[in-house]
Design a protein around this nucleic acid. Structure first.
Lengths: 353, 353
DNA sequence: CAAGCCCTGTTGAACGATCCAACGACCCGC
DNA sequence: GCGGGTCGTTGGATCGTTCAACAGGGCTTG
């Protein structure tokens, strides 16, 4: 029918079809209130007929705004974070779309060398802001971006004293607190913690939650560190189990560590959920496997993604059906949900209420 | 030092600094061969001094090329595909970057309704082409994109008779063939197959590989179907195991089905890898868990990602260090690698060579 | 010696949208 | 009847880059 397969209609085409000027068509699209209703409907009919879509590139050039958010996909870290990262990418993409934004993916080396990529994208006007994740303790990105006045928000706290930029995070301390309360309610009094090495931010936070839980319930802390892998978790948990006074519950800093702990437990002829309670963190797909049934803390990634996008879009003045909250808080903390499975609560034995 | 925090230098600034015209600077960047060496180095010095980066948006407007590839993130299907999808996203992002492209994420409903999103991005000149994944049998995208002359390539075959567009895929039939050969070599002669329902393309391909393997080794096929979930796999595998003539090896269409099969096996007091061999497909992180140790087929996702990007960039005339192969094949098939673990090859018993 | 070509570099226009200043029409009040 | 304010609309300028056409110098060629 139309010859639209070759070139798209332009603003001038629509204006000609509707018998008005370009600016009037632009107003119908951007500030409909400024156009008389009769004119507006006529223009809209022309837009509909020609199936006109404003050229994003031309608009970007004039307004100096790309309506794109940059997100750096890291060079595939451990297998653990993947399911979380996957859902997060989907969440920010969907959330950005509601505000007329899209997500632009790029790669960059970790640390300060990677900043060049961020700078390049900005110099090229390729993005309006950034969404950060996988933040580490000495992360140079927050400081650099704030210093350059670039809008951004992060999934993960800065973990430094100075409060730089907006962030959203999951309250690991509260989550581990839930796990401690859960196993304590099940009657466990000797509760161990399988943690990460000092200085990882996330790990320290979760350890703090464990320690607070111990204080709250008046039990003695029993902490052992691993580097995060399954094998390391198995070794570390084995060390705890072979003590003369072994714990009857093991709260783990991650699902990966918990898998190692499960292994150490079964190797010693103990039944998880029966003889000893075990909990993990992240609620990865492997936690729900039959024969594993690991109690774990599920992160509200979709909520986190929405919140992160809201925060970065705040200073950018986004548009869309859900009105952007002008005074968005610079920080937001979500609490994870404890998903109870038989590793801490056997099916055949209801445990104590 | 510089006042570059406010606005980036422009082509005219560089031209003025080097004492040449805008076009000459443009030529230095895009077609260096057309500029005299002496002038070129002078311009490059100016570019270096001012830290100039060409404005991507202005370039896009003029050349009608966004140097962006669209990729649709699906609304989070089953948990299975996630690890694969995650690596795939990273692979195409990195591969596109080598050619000066970036990946733009968007969401769209499945099937024909989602085509509007593709059309919109094209009308807006937001992307130059698309990378497809999660292709299904009746997928309308291939036909629509080829009909509109849009460059694209897909991870996954079209599965229809008519050969529309470029694709890259993993040879599921060959992979399952490897698995059958592996268990046959271990001495198994009664080999069952846990498959998906008819008509899924991927599932049919893997089933065909199983049937070819049976013919090759002269063993009788024994097929049962499941809907893909763990529970369904457990039930289906149980049906096979409870037969009067149960198989001694179970080749599964996916890791998820294999997890179900593992469950059914252990429930009946059998030891996987010892009394019965089990293999999966995808080599998901959960396959490597201690206590599971599932033999599985690992997909070369990074290679697939590189190939997909090469194919979509072919008609777009990409630039970059690795010269784009002009006559790129429209199709490419990669063979998965069998990762042997104890579910088919116990540690304590070396099995037959 | 003149015509023609390649090589280098310059100029004006164009891509398609939005911003800006100005203008005509209209209504109101004096 | 006329000045002033508001609303809707208009044409021109602009964002930063690349395309098309062309000017001038040095060289070869008839």
């Amino acid at each position: 029918m139309t010859r639209a397969t070759r070139t798209s209609p332009t603003l001038a085409n629509v204006a000609a079809a509707a018998g008005v000027s370009r600016q009037t068509v632009s107003n119908v699209i951007n500030t409909p209130g400024r156009v008389a209703p009769e004119t507006r409907s006529r223009v809209q009919a022309a837009i509909e007929t020609l199936n006109y879509r404003p050229n994003r590139v031309a608009r970007s050039l004039r307004t100096r705004t790309s309506r794109l958010l940059g997100y750096c996909v890291q060079p595939a870290p451990v297998g653990m974070l993947n399911p979380v990262l996957d859902r997060f990418v989907h969440a920010i993409t969907e959330s950005a779309a509601e505000h007329g934004f899209h997500v632009l993916l790029f790669t960059a080396p970790a640390g300060a060398p990677g900043l060049d990529r961020y700078a390049e994208l900005l110099a090229q006007q390729a993005v309006d802001g950034f969404v950060l994740s996988d933040t580490v303790v000495g992360d140079p990105r927050h400081g650099w971006l704030t210093a350059h006045g670039v809008p951004f928000s992060a999934f993960g706290r800065t973990w430094t004293g100075e409060d730089q930029g907006a962030w959203v995070d999951v309250d690991g301390a509260a989550g581990i607190g839930q796990a401690v309360a859960h196993v304590h309610a099940a009657g466990h009094r000797r509760i161990g913690f399988l943690g990460w090495p000092d200085g990882s931010g996330v790990g320290d936070d979760r350890l703090a939650g464990y320690q607070a839980g111990c204080r709250r319930f008046g039990v003695a802390p029993l902490v052992v560190r691993t580097d995060g892998g399954i094998e390391a978790g198995r070794t570390a948990a084995g060390g705890l189990l072979d003590r003369p006074d072994p714990p009857s519950a093991l709260v783990c800093v991650s699902d990966l560590a918990a898998h190692g702990a499960l292994r150490a437990v079964t190797e010693r002829g103990l039944r998880p959920g029966h003889d000893i309670a075990i909990t993990g963190f992240d609620d990865t797909p492997s936690a729900a496997l039959p024969g594993i049934e690991l109690t774990s803390l599920s992160q509200p990634i979709e909520q986190v993604g929405r919140a992160v996008v809201r925060m970065v879009l705040g200073p950018l003045g986004a548009a869309g059906p859900p009105t952007p909250p002008a005074g968005a808080a610079p920080h937001q903390l979500f609490e994870p949900t404890l998903v109870i499975r038989s590793s801490s609560h056997p099916k055949d034995d209801g445990g104590s209420t």
